[in-house]
Simulated assay, not measured.
Amino acid sequence: MATVNWKKFNMEVVADASNGQKGWEMFLEHSPAVVITDIVMPEQNGIELARKIKQAAPATKILLLSCHRDFEYAQEGIKVGASGYILKTAFQDDEFEEYLKQFTDEIQKSEEREQDSNGPEVLIYEIDEKWPEPIQKAVLLITKDLSESYSSVDVANEVGLSRSHFSTLFSKSVGESFHTFTEKLKINAASELLETTSLTLQEIGERVGVHDGKYFSKWFKKCTGCTPSDYRLTKRRITSDNLTPNP
């Protein structure tokens, strides 16, 4: 795999792990779209790693590398959601690259469907008609596209008020400061995207106006008390538990 031309498949290697536990930690940190793993690994085998990944991010493509004696394990891996497996004793570049091409095509189609159905992130917020007209306009502007990060000065200029007058009027009308209001909107939207989509942390950050992936993780943890990856995993686990029939 060291000779694979990853760029040919619009891919890059974001992490390399020496055992299953480290692989899980790397997955939580990077949220890759594709995971390639040995079945036999120390600390945590590839089947358990695949199971945890599919619970956290069902859209992730997983390719298992197996020895002949691991054939039953490979079948179990397919059952938990792996996309396929390759026998290491008969490894061929053509077979490996065919999987990569398949993954690239599937990911591209999924992104196109998601883009067609979602478009830009738009949050509908109920406007209180009792608010002064400048504040109504301000809230409409903020919620129209959360990928834009407006400062209070920007919005004040848009609605024809000085910054100090706008800030005072906004807090009095809405019941919280402009900063608190916009941050809550972005956190709620990010949480929804983490729970209901397979978008990467970078993509979610861009949709809510936090365009640096590393800063997005720090910002989300500061606001919620947990990392985006942990939040996504917890929510997916709760959903999975709720779907499990009672004995």
Rank of each mutant, 00 (worst) to 15 (best):
M1V: 15
W6A: 01
W6D: 13
K7A: 11
F9L: 02
N10V: 04
M11E: 07
M11R: 12
E12G: 05
A15N: 10
D16K: 14
S18R: 15
N19Q: 04
N19E: 03
Q21H: 02
K22R: 08
K22I: 11
W24M: 08
M26N: 11
F27A: 01
F27M: 02
E29D: 10
H30F: 11
H30R: 14
V34I: 14
V34K: 12
V35E: 02
I36D: 07
T37G: 06
I39M: 03
M41H: 06
M41I: 04
P42W: 04
P42Q: 06
G46M: 05
E48C: 10
E48D: 14
E48R: 10
L49I: 12
K52T: 08
K52E: 07
I53N: 04
A56S: 10
P58K: 07
A59V: 14
T60N: 10
I62L: 11
L64A: 03
S66T: 10
Y73E: 12
Q75T: 01
E76I: 05
I78A: 01
K79I: 09
G81H: 07
G81A: 12
A82Y: 11
A82Q: 10
Y85C: 01
Y85H: 02
I86W: 06
A90N: 15
F91N: 02
D93T: 08
E95L: 03
E95A: 09
E98W: 02
Q102A: 10
F103L: 14
D105Q: 15
I107W: 07
E112K: 10
E114V: 07
D116P: 06
P120A: 04
L123D: 01
E126R: 13
D128M: 04
E129K: 14
E129L: 03
K130M: 11
K130N: 15
Q136I: 05
Q136N: 10
K137N: 12
V139C: 04
L141I: 10
I142R: 09
K144D: 07
D145A: 03
L146P: 03
S147E: 05
Y150A: 04
Y150M: 07
A156F: 03
A156R: 08
A156K: 15
A156S: 11
L161T: 02
L161M: 14
H165Y: 12
F166K: 06
S167K: 06
F170V: 02
S173A: 05
G175N: 12
T180M: 13
F181N: 00
E183H: 05
N188P: 02
A189C: 01
S191F: 00
L193G: 02
L194V: 08
E195M: 00
T197V: 08
T197Q: 06
S198A: 09
L201Q: 11
Q202Y: 11
E203I: 01
I204R: 07
G205W: 05
G205S: 00
E206K: 13
E206Q: 14
E206I: 02
V208Q: 04
G209V: 03
V210C: 00
H211D: 07
D212V: 09
Y215W: 14
W219Y: 04
F220G: 09
K221D: 13
K222N: 11
C226G: 12
S229D: 04
D230H: 10
Y231C: 05
Y231E: 03
T234I: 00
K235R: 14
R237P: 03
I238L: 13
T239L: 14
D241W: 10
D241V: 00
N242P: 06
L243E: 15
P247F: 13
